[in-house]
Amino acid sequence: MTKVTMIVNGKSVSAETEGRTLLVQYLREGLGLTGTHVGCDTSQCGACVVHVNGEAVKSCTMFAAEAEGAEVTTIEGMANPDGSLSVIQQAFQDHHGLQCGFCTPGMVMSAAALLKDNPRPTEAEVRAYLEGNICRCTGYHNIVKAIMAASGQDVAIAAE
């Protein structure tokens, strides 16, 4: 067992882990942050996406020990400081970008990573960026719509 220390959602945390402890296990089982989901456990589905030092990664395919000293942001750290929904989260609600909500944490984290690097993406860029995030309820149209809206761009409503 090794002590692994990192900053999660702005707070310094540390926990004893095994070498094989995945970052997602550290977050969910160690810290009780169950907002990050394990969908497939094979880095296909993207439900476990978190940010490590500002970059989107699949936390089911990274060891906790490798995040030693890193700044990690999870879905629990995405709302505004006053607890209200952030622009991206609000856009997901406004545009019905979720149904069962299981993929949503990963979708929001991927969307945030995309908009950080590319504040006004085209629809094609949004779709390409989400290729590692799978949603099994709503399809992707409303998710794409939400991300376009969150970037301050017009959202076509013809499909509604």
Binding site: G19, S43, T61, M62, F63, E66
Partner: peptide, 27 residues
């Protein structure tokens, strides 16, 4: 050695490899 782990970690999960120690190169 462990590079980015995007192949090795799935391999370990499948128990197709059983190293006693991983030396991560990510730091």
């Amino acid at each position: 050695f462990l590079g980015g782990g995007q192949t090795l970690i799935p391999t370990l999960k499948q128990r197709l490899a059983a190293p006693s120690k991983l030396v991560s190169l990510s730091g």
